[in-house]
Amino acid sequence: MHSRDAPVSVDSDSEQAFSLLADETRLAILRVLADSPNEPLTFSELRERVGVPDSGRFNYHLGKLTGRFVKKSDAGYEIRLAGWNIVGAILGGAYTRGDDIGPVPVDPPCPACDGQVEATYVDEHVTVRCADCDKTILDAGIPPGVLEGYDDASFPEVAERFVLSLFSQARDGFCASCRGRMEPRLVTNTDELAPSDVCEEAQAIYSCTRCREELIAGIGMAFLDHPAVVSFYYDHGVDLSQPNLWGTAWRDKPTLTVVSDDPLRATVDFVVDEDTLTLVIDETLAVHDVERSPAS
């Protein structure tokens, strides 16, 4: 499983928006308004909380934010959704513990060799890798603020839950980075993947049409919340609402088989104990048929 960021082109409207935030006073205004989401603040209240004695200077900076990031009404000033996103990005990048964590031992053992799996967090990236065979199970970018308030022992589970949330949004069609539209596609030829991609068996890719962010994973992640898959695993004592990326749910990872090329159709087999769940999917990862039967 891997998340990848591609180069992003920034249009003039985006550049203008960011230029409005190039001042500490303006960022402080957004922070204060975010601390009072249900309480519009008057000009005087807002200026006092921000701590700017010069009324004219404060009015200038507040005026630059009003409209795009701040809403003005008869009741006072309130933060707009765009302002919320800016404050969220600031808090997401905040981290006071230090950058590096781990290696932290992770259970269960490596699905490839039964060796010890370890998780590390370095340079805003979490990596889950087998210490014995060096198989990489997870490589994903995580904002530092996600891990704030957790101890080292909790780090792997927190990282996993965050990555699950990214894929949940992607499956629903939304980019977690820019809120753009995510387009899913089935990859049947791994030559399409870059040499650096850690998921050598990756068969599901979600690409943002706006910022070009990509999430890459094995085929099982594409159907983690499909009703048939959820009930299938639940019947076998596995709750997929709990962290399972490198846990019991994927130790016998689903297998993909191409059954036709035009139109492209493939089957995905989930096998647990003596049962098999088969999904018939197309190139957009849409499910066309479901069949459950004893394993052959």
Results as ranks from 00 to 15, higher is better:
35 D>G: 13
36 S>P: 02
37 P>S: 08
39 E>Y: 01
39 E>M: 02
39 E>Q: 01
41 L>R: 01
43 F>K: 07
44 S>M: 09
45 E>T: 04
47 R>W: 01
48 E>F: 03
53 P>E: 02
53 P>D: 00
54 D>R: 00
56 G>P: 00
56 G>K: 00
60 Y>N: 06
63 G>S: 04
69 F>S: 05
70 V>Y: 01
71 K>I: 10
73 S>V: 06
73 S>E: 06
74 D>A: 02
74 D>G: 00
75 A>V: 01
76 G>F: 01
77 Y>G: 05
77 Y>N: 03
77 Y>Q: 03
84 W>N: 13
85 N>C: 03
85 N>W: 05
85 N>R: 14
87 V>L: 14
91 L>H: 06
92 G>H: 06
92 G>T: 02
94 A>Q: 15
95 Y>I: 14
104 V>E: 08
105 P>D: 15
108 P>M: 02
109 P>S: 04
110 C>W: 09
112 A>I: 12
114 D>W: 12
117 V>R: 09
119 A>K: 10
120 T>V: 11
122 V>G: 06
125 H>M: 11
125 H>W: 06
126 V>I: 15
128 V>M: 13
130 C>S: 12
132 D>H: 05
134 D>E: 10
135 K>Q: 13
140 A>H: 07
141 G>F: 12
141 G>M: 07
144 P>S: 09
146 V>W: 09
148 E>T: 13
148 E>C: 14
149 G>L: 13
150 Y>P: 14
155 F>R: 14
157 E>G: 13
157 E>K: 11
158 V>Q: 15
162 F>H: 14
167 F>Y: 15
168 S>A: 08
174 F>R: 06
174 F>S: 08
174 F>L: 07
175 C>S: 08
177 S>E: 11
181 R>S: 10
182 M>Q: 09
182 M>I: 08
